[in-house]
Design a protein around this nucleic acid. Structure first.
Lengths: 351, 351
DNA sequence: CTGAAAGCGCTTACAG
DNA sequence: CTGAAAGCGCTTACAG
């Protein structure tokens, strides 16, 4: 009556449970005829196996490592929390997630972290790191050992990673460009652009997308040379201040990387919040506050919760040898204004 | 060594498995002392029960009914597909979802559908319907029988529904207002506003939010009296055309309900796509196309996939007596431009 | 190449 | 009020 089980298959095919299991799991050592008999029963009865019962029986656990840079940015804190939250939610599915922070740019430490993952026998790894030959090699080693690998936030396009969980930064830059053009008016005017470092592909992509749109669609606006902030608020604040001193007619600031705090400080101190259009990335607590206060006009966001859960789901699917539903795993480029700011989405105090 | 199981609890508490189970599931008929002994063992060992093993043992299935209007809009087709997709993904968790379409506005048919759900013994129901006293009563009946109930897309605030899965339409209207104000320029200019019917609360909320922002922040713009389109493209097209004939200086159109197709037809026929800012709701295939072609400037979207999955998750949590993670179940007001249009997110052909 | 039996972590009649 | 035993759907040694 109910859904067919292995017992039904065994009965119909006239074999034992063990044999059914062998065929179902494509294990060797079954005669061709027997395999066929079982497969026929399977398709005749429309059998579909119960993965969670299977996982229970084999005591399957999925051990995933998440490798993050130790950037002291709020976004990384938000991401880390999102990963912990995802881990808590998925522990019922026997997923175990361990998060490791590695000093940014420290290739030796990063390589050690990879080695550790390799020896500890993790089933999957999610990596957020800049592209380097070392990272590429380590990914290749992991893949050779059958470990599932996804790149997170920053893609590793040259590597053998199974999947990329993150946004298209060129498109994100274009999106910022259109909104800047529309919000800051037709001009004439100058736009300040700040990034962490032009050595990161994400930043280069965002800047390219942004410039392309401004140049082709908003001829009244010009973008100034890139400010590099190196994840340092004070440095960003200082250079932004200089930039505002040196240029008249600035109408907007695009903060493509971390360091938004430095920019908002300068803008507030000079009382320019109403006159400038400010667009930043990533919905951190500080960004939320600035949006609410009307200092920042737009935040382009990559949803940390979605990224964490998607990475975990994709790794699990890879381990199970199952296809992911692509449309469900696509990370969107979210546009956040004060008006559509998700209420309390950053942190739910559980009290 | 590994995680503690019921066997460990039984051993430590010095009772049988059956008794452990009784205490764990808060069933009656256990002496106070025994209960305490078991509970102590539980907290001492840090036991946390394996829900999927429990569900396997009790052969638990979750049967949910989704009740949708039979509006012939593309959005409803998208939603229905999203529900089917969610159902497929969740069948591994023993969720079974049945979707029923009911003729919109037909209170008798709707009541029959409710009655059927009641007698068929569903575990949960997700409802998308206009607020009426009948709906409120039927929800109360279902709740009295212990059925989990969520309102979807359209809230039923006066009812006993457990949860609302959808967006804040007032905020959505405000979001549309800000974007219209920024995109259509400071004015002077007039804005056409179209809805399905002002009898639906969603539409009233969107219109209110929109007007509020335009009135207070963009004094150069004025909104024209509402056009009602009754989910009918031709009617929308006709009335929009009239409206454009009667008014000079129209700079934008806000389509708060279905019928975007009627508007885009008129706008294209008159070659006004470049001159007008057009903002609509819901990322249907047609909306995607218009966004890509540059006819529509902004789509405010409520993600059908998120809504379907969230509704299912919330219903399941309700059945399990488990808290949901609020931040994870909040449906966002998505802003979609041509630039951040998710690639192929609407439909993945599996070929 | 194949099968009988025990077990994964939990629940459910049935006895007592 | 409590326990021994069987079972959910699947997998895993161990025999043969």
């Amino acid at each position: 009556m109910g859904k067919p089980t292995v017992h039904d298959i065994a009965r119909v095919a006239g074999v034992s449970l063990a044999t059914v299991d062998r065929v179902l799991n494509a294990r060797a050592g079954v005669r061709e005829v027997t395999v066929r008999r079982v497969q026929e029963a399977v398709s005749r009865l429309g059998y579909v196996r119960d993965l969670s019962a299977a996982n229970l029986a084999r005591q399957r656990r999925y051990r995933f490592a998440f490798l993050l840079p130790d950037t002291p940015s709020q976004f990384l804190r938000v991401l880390h929390e999102a990963i912990d939250e995802a881990a808590a939610g998925l522990s019922a599915d026997r997923l175990e997630i361990e998060t490791t922070h590695v000093a940014i740019g420290d290739q030796v430490a990063l390589q050690q972290a990879f080695r550790r993952i390799e020896t500890m026998g993790f089933d999957g790894v999610a990596i957020m790191a800049n592209e380097t030959p070392m990272v590429r090699d380590m990914i290749a080693r992991l893949k050779a050992r059958g470990v599932a690998v996804v790149a997170m936030i920053t893609d590793q396009p040259q590597s053998e990673r199974d999947h990329f969980v993150g946004i298209d930064n060129l498109a994100a830059g274009r999106t910022a460009g259109v909104l800047m053009g529309r919000f800051a008016g037709p001009g004439p005017g100058k736009i300040v652009v700040a990034v962490n470092t032009m050595q990161a592909r994400d930043m280069v992509d965002r800047r390219m997308g942004f410039d392309e749109v401004i140049a082709t669609r908003f001829p009244g606006l010009t973008t100034l040379p890139t400010i590099e902030g190196w994840d340092n608020h004070q440095m960003v604040a200082r250079v932004t201040a200089q930039c505002l001193d040196n240029h008249t007619g600035v109408v907007g600031i695009y903060c493509a990387g971390a360091g938004l705090r430095g920019i908002t400080e300068v803008v507030r101190a000079r009382g320019l919040a109403d006159r400038l259009t400010i667009i930043g990335h990533d919905l951190t607590p500080h960004a939320r506050e600035m949006l609410t206060d009307g200092v920042v006009d737009v935040i382009i966001n990559q949803n940390a919760g979605h990224i964490a859960r998607s990475a975990a789901r994709v790794l699990k699917a890879q381990c199970d040898g199952v296809e992911v539903i692509a449309s469900q795993e696509r990370i969107r480029i979210e546009i956040v204004l004060k008006e559509n700011l998700p209420q309390g989405a950053y942190r739910e105090d559980k009290t």
